[in-house]
Design a protein around this nucleic acid. Sequence first.
RNA 1: GCGCCCGUAGCUCAAUUGGAUAGAGCGUCUGACUACGGAUCAGGAGGUUGCGUGUUCGAGUCGCGCCGGGCGCGCCA
Length: 587
Amino acid sequence: MSLLGHLSQIAGQAFADLGLSSDLGETVPSQRPELAQFQVNGAMAAGKAVGRPPREIAQEVADRLSGHPDVSRVEVAGPGFINITLTDEAIARFATEAAGDQYLGFEVTARPETVVVDYAGPNVAKAMHVGHLRATIIGDSLARLFSFAGHKVIRDPHFGDWGFQMGLLIAALADEQPDLPYFDPDAGEYPTESPVTLDDLQRVYPEASARARSDDDFADAARMATVRLQQGDPGYLALWAHMKGVSEQSQRKDFGALGVNFDLWYGESDVHDRLAPLVAGLRESGVAEESHGALVIRVAEETDNREIPPLILESRSGGFLYSTTDLATVQMRVEELHADLMLYVVDRRQADHFVQIFRAARRAGIVPEDTRLEHIWFGTMNGPDGKPFKTREGGVVRLADVIDMLTVAARRRLDEAHLAEEYPDEERDQIAEMVGIAALKFGDLINNRTSDYVFDLDRFSSFEGKTGPYLQYAAVRIKSILRRASAAGFAPGSLLPPTVDTERDLMLELLRLPEVVGRAIDLRAPNHVAEFAFDLAGKFNRFYDTCHILSEPDEGRRGSWLSLSTWALSALERLLDLLGIEVPDRM
RNA sequence: GCGCCCGUAGCUCAAUUGGAUAGAGCGUCUGACUACGGAUCAGGAGGUUGCGUGUUCGAGUCGCGCCGGGCGCGCCA
């Protein structure tokens, strides 16, 4: 059990002995490190509950704790805080246990669940751009966190390939290049090479989208094309496959550059076979009804303080919309993937959409009672001007360009610092890329998921302070020490009770890892991991500044410090891995 | 108009979900290298947490009312 878990149990028992709830014993790191190492706040809540002075309760709990052999000091302070300080021997014992554990003291879940993480949300005809960054980075970190916790994680980007945007593209191409065989009902064979490139699609799509807004005839044509595609027109399907193919190819490359991999590469179209039966069933059961010529599911509830529009299953023109595919996807994830929890990592603007989907899924009986659906929303990524991040010309910034900019910046910074100078070119390029990606991911994940934040390339590229590269550097330096120690024939030894403040602080920090990671998972908040990794690196740097390991003459002490360094490195690398950040061997 | 989110140091952001004296990074000022990688470390200055008002032992956090900003509100995704 983790140190904090252990302390909570001891304090909880003390509360229980007084006839109070053992939950009150929850122990957390002290907010006043100069007073104590840990604190218990339950006496105040208990005082309110049973109508007794909190300090009195706190004192009774403290009296019971003071006899424990691990506790060196316990005091009651303020309105009823219970401050606890451990013996150095106890710290060393817990440290030894956590350092030797492959999960660093974290307790893997006893009840593994299947967790589907739906994130990134690439679409046909759209190269990955900065708008996809947060979803991808946050989703990937959450997937890593749940996986670390022992759950079965299924990562699915949920490719947008079956809605109205496909009709728009087909209609636009039919207009622009009517001679293509896909539009000829008598054509038997279709080319194997795509007639369009991703660049073509990226030009055509915004044009078509804009035209549909002002040109009703064109919009109708696009809607008809959507329906024809969904009904299986062979020419349309062949063209669709080409468009999907070139989009996916480019997107897989972008994800690869980010170090993001998916377990499935499903799209809206993969649930196509479910759409008609699902819709027919809902119509029959009365869950769905006609409204304004469309088929909808009403999801408004009496307690709503605003109007929640109905979910539209089938448009007036008979086409299925993304609501329809989303609902069918929920069904698929329940029936085929046996999901217990579905996390939709999608930006906040779609909050209403997910309310509709989740309610409709419940109403339609598509999800079992204990299956949870969550919209993990996040804020907007803005440019330094505080407005959504755009190029100087006002266009969207391609993901590949962002990565490129950061890699160039990383490379320049490496050169300035005369780092990696003598390494082979290939390794130096790899390091620059790793550093650039770390800057990008950490710069995003350090922020609270729900706040908007400013993406400032210059700031991220400065590689100083609270940044991914700072953490990589800290880890690389530990590796360097361990290499030197090994070369000198110094072996790690058992962890001894700390004798230096910075050493004790580092151990206590490392012992917090289980709770921090657990909290990050509970709150779906990777920023807790990012913040902790930064604090940990700082604690190590302070330790390393005060304790000179390699010149330490006492063998036992030196061995203990080497073990502490090894432990810190494992923790740092693990935490960074949970953020999707890699650490080079040297830099 | 209705609803959701936000407003914290000069700037960018945190804050263990109601706990003690609101913390970091950047910037700024002062220090520390004949030691393990100075992308480092030690320290200073910098705050009426938008404003007001409640709730209670305790409020950045919860309620109410204002002010300011972002976003969403039926057949796009």
